[in-house]
Amino acid sequence: MRPKENIEKFVRVRKPHVTTSRQMDKRTLDDSFAAMEQTIRTKSAEHKPSVQRISILSRMIKLTAAAAVIIVTTGLIAVFVDRGIGEKPDTNTVSEIVKSPVEMMTAMSLERAFQRGGIEAVEEQSRKAFRPLGLKPKNLSFDQILAEFNGNCHSTGRTRL
C-alpha cells in the first residue's frame, strides 16, 4: 500500500474517535500547507531540482504534515474531552470498576444477577468468579511443592495450587 493510502486509511480509522469542527480542521490544515509550501519554495530556489521531483516531494510533505497535525489535534481533543478543560474531578461520581471474585459471590450481587437473567445468570457469575483460580497443574513434583513452601517462586516455575 502506498503512503498516501496509508495516511487516508489512518485518517478514516481515527476519525470516528474525535469530534472537531470542520472550520477548525480546515484552518489548521491550510496553515500547515501554506507553511510547507513556503519552505519548499525557499529551498527550491537554492537547489533548483526537476519539476517532477518537486511535485512528488511537495505531495509527500503535505501528506506527512497533514498526518502529524491530525495526530496532535486528536491527542489534544481526546485529553480535553476526557477531563474537561479546567474542570476538577467529581469525587461523587461512581467510576465503573470491574468486580472482584469476592464481590461477585456475595448474596446481594448474585440476587441482582438472578434479576437480570435468572438461574443461568447466577451460574455464569459464579463461574466467572471462580475462573481466576486458573487451571490445575497437570503434574506437580515434590521439588515444586518444596519451592512453593520456601517461597522460591523462580526456582522451578511457580505452580498455581
Binding site: V102, M105, T106, A107, M108, L110, V122, E123, E124, S126, R127, A129, F130
Partner: peptide
Amino acid sequence: EVLLPPLH
C-alpha cells in the same frame, strides 16, 4: 454480603 459457595 455473605459469600456463597461455588453454586454453578
